[in-house]
Each structure stands twice: as C-alpha cells, then as structure tokens.
Simulated scan of single mutants.
Amino acid sequence: MLTFTEVMRTVDSMKAVGKPHTLWVSFSLLYEKHNGLANARVIFEKVVQVNYKALDDLASVWCEWAEIKLRDKNFGGELELMRQATTEPSVEIKRRAVF
C-alpha cells in the first residue's frame, strides 16, 4: 500500500506516459478487496479532481467508482454518484482544466 500511496503523491497525470488513472483505480480496488471501502472512496474523491490528458480517463475513473458502489449494493449512492459525474464542472474547476 505504501507504493500506491507514493504513486498518488508523485505521478503527474499531465506528464505521465500511458494511463495513470489505472494506477489509482487499482489502488482503490485493492482497498475494496480488503474491506476498505471508506479508503477506496477517499482515493476516488481525490482522483476525480485530477486534470487528465484525455476526458476518457476521467470517465473511466467515475465508472470504476460506480461499479464499486454497485458491487456493494449501494444503488442510491451509485445513482447520486452518476449525477455528480455528469454535472457540469464549476467555473473554478474549468479554469484549472487544461484541454
């Protein structure tokens, strides 16, 4: 887990080659596997705020988070999460984004 934590701190998604979001999703899935849904949620909350090179990468993160909620049978939470994922970002977030 320390390796994943270090990755969270050091990887710059805009400079990374490949798909760094897969590292963060894997970290969350590791927590899910070991009954750490609260920690998985914290990771997802952080990584949906990251600027990504491709919008598809961000969409993949949201979908993985929703799938965890579905596996946990948290259907109301999953629906709310998808509402949040499809809401237009605030002006502040748009200013930070690099497209």
Rank of each mutant, 00 (worst) to 15 (best):
V50F: 13
V61L: 02
L58C: 10
L30Q: 10
T10P: 00
W24N: 02
A66G: 15
K69F: 08
R71W: 10
Y31N: 13
F99N: 09
V17D: 15
V17P: 05
R83K: 14
L23C: 15
R95D: 06
S26L: 02
V25D: 10
D12F: 12
L2H: 06
V7Q: 03
A97D: 11
L58K: 13
Q49P: 00
T87D: 01
W24S: 10
E64C: 13
L81I: 00
K46M: 03
F44I: 00
E45S: 08
G76H: 14
V50Q: 03
V61Y: 01
K15V: 05
K33W: 03
P20A: 07
V42N: 09
M82S: 02
A40R: 02
E6Q: 08
F4D: 10
P89C: 04
R71D: 13
A54H: 14
T5V: 11
P20E: 05
M8R: 11
R41L: 07
I43A: 07
G36N: 07
R83D: 11
L55T: 09
M8H: 09
L2W: 04
E88Q: 02
P20N: 09
W65G: 05
P20S: 04
L58M: 12
T10M: 08
W62N: 05
E92R: 12
V11L: 05
M8W: 00
L37A: 06
K73F: 08
K15I: 08
E45M: 08
V91S: 13
F44P: 03
E80Q: 14
K53Y: 02
K94I: 11
S90P: 01
E92M: 12
E80W: 05
E32A: 08
K15N: 11
E64I: 04
V48D: 06
A66I: 08
G36Q: 08
P89A: 05
Y31A: 14
E78H: 07
F75K: 12
K94T: 06
V17R: 15
T10N: 10
W65V: 00
L23K: 12
